[in-house]
Nucleic acid binder design. Structure first.
Length: 293
DNA sequence: AGCCACCAGTCTTACCGAAG
DNA sequence: CTTCGGTAAGACTGGTGGCT
């Protein structure tokens, strides 16, 4: 398995976080930004017949999904109203769906449907007309006893939605994008840089350990790491919108203006020079020989 | 072909600062 | 004080071009 595929999500997130670059923006915001930028680039829309076919194909599934979501929330709405919400969500989703984003239509439609359901449930709750709590669990019973048989509030709906355990489709899409970007960027690193990045951000090893095991000085590993991060900045900046991408672009401009960012060329790496390092290398080679044999 | 000088890039040592 | 990571300075290496 190539190192860059392992670095993937966790590695790049840590690279970015450790560099102090994606502290503010949430994952969801970045997904939206990524999607919007690509939409601008490609700007491809489905034809009218394609839209109609999508609506017809997914109508039944969407209705089942809506009922499933409402069951999960222990909320009840009028079935006619639910069906109408489903149709509305389908129309919205079909209008905005872009096949080039890589997400399935069902995933895309999920957001519109969920958003409309939240609004509907919240509205009903605020009017106190939702006879919820069909569940039998203790928490519900306690709430019934303490507050009486009232409907859920918009805040409770939001809390319920934010406390899900499953990975949301937007997170999955974001991870998919991140893996792809990181794979492309890491492919441009040389072997040592990949190894260092992998060990630092995936295996969470310390620089000194990496230096010892690879037979280089700790300082050199630090430099290799910095160079690798510069390369990743260089390659990832154009692909990322939002705060992270802007910061990467600015960093690149800064480096360019200072003449520090030169054309990357293939690097011929020398063997470590220190006697200690050479001994370490030779020892590791000797250890590997019996295994190979 | 062999030698030499030069240069760009790699690597190490020594030192410094931040954080716990 | 210890640990960890960054930087500066200089040694070292390999490639290249000129000269004999």
């Amino acid at each position: 398995m190539p190192v860059y595929s392992l670095v993937g999500v966790k590695g790049l997130e840590q690279v970015a976080v450790k560099a102090g670059r994606i502290e503010k923006a949430s994952r969801a915001e970045k997904v939206v930004e990524l999607s919007l930028s690509k939409q601008k680039q490609k700007n491809k829309q489905l034809s009218a017949s394609d839209r109609e076919k999508l609506v017809l194909d997914f109508r039944l599934k969407a209705r089942k999904l809506a009922r499933s979501i409402l069951r999960k929330w222990h909320a009840r709405l009028d079935l006619m109203e639910v069906d109408s919400l489903v149709d509305l969500s389908l129309c919205e989703a079909v209008r905005r769906y872009d096949v080039n984003k890589g997400a399935s239509f069902m995933t895309f439609m999920f957001y519109h449907l969920r958003g409309n359901l939240i609004r509907a449930v919240s509205t009903a709750a605020s009017l106190n007309v939702v006879p919820v709590m069909e569940g039998e669990d203790g928490a519900c019973e306690r709430r019934k006893r303490s507050k009486g048989n009232r409907g859920i509030s918009a805040i409770e709906v939001a809390e319920a939605l934010s406390s899900h355990d499953n990975v949301l489709p937007d997170e999955a899409l974001f991870k998919k994008e991140l893996v792809m970007l990181s794979s492309n960027a890491c492919a441009k690193l040389d072997a040592l840089e990949r190894e260092v990045i992998y060990r630092i951000y995936v295996q969470e090893q310390q620089l000194i350990d990496i230096a010892h095991s690879l037979g280089y000085s700790r300082c050199h590993i630090s430099r290799v790491k910095r160079k690798a991060l510069d390369t990743l900045c260089h390659d990832l900046a154009p692909s990322m919108d939002g705060d992270f991408g802007k910061e990467l672009s600015e960093a690149r401009k800064r480096l360019n203006s200072q003449g520090e960012l030169k054309e990357r060329r293939s690097v011929h790496r020398r063997k470590p020079r220190s006697r200690k390092a050479q001994e370490e290398r030779e020892r590791r080679l000797l250890e590997q020989l019996p295994r190979a044999a």
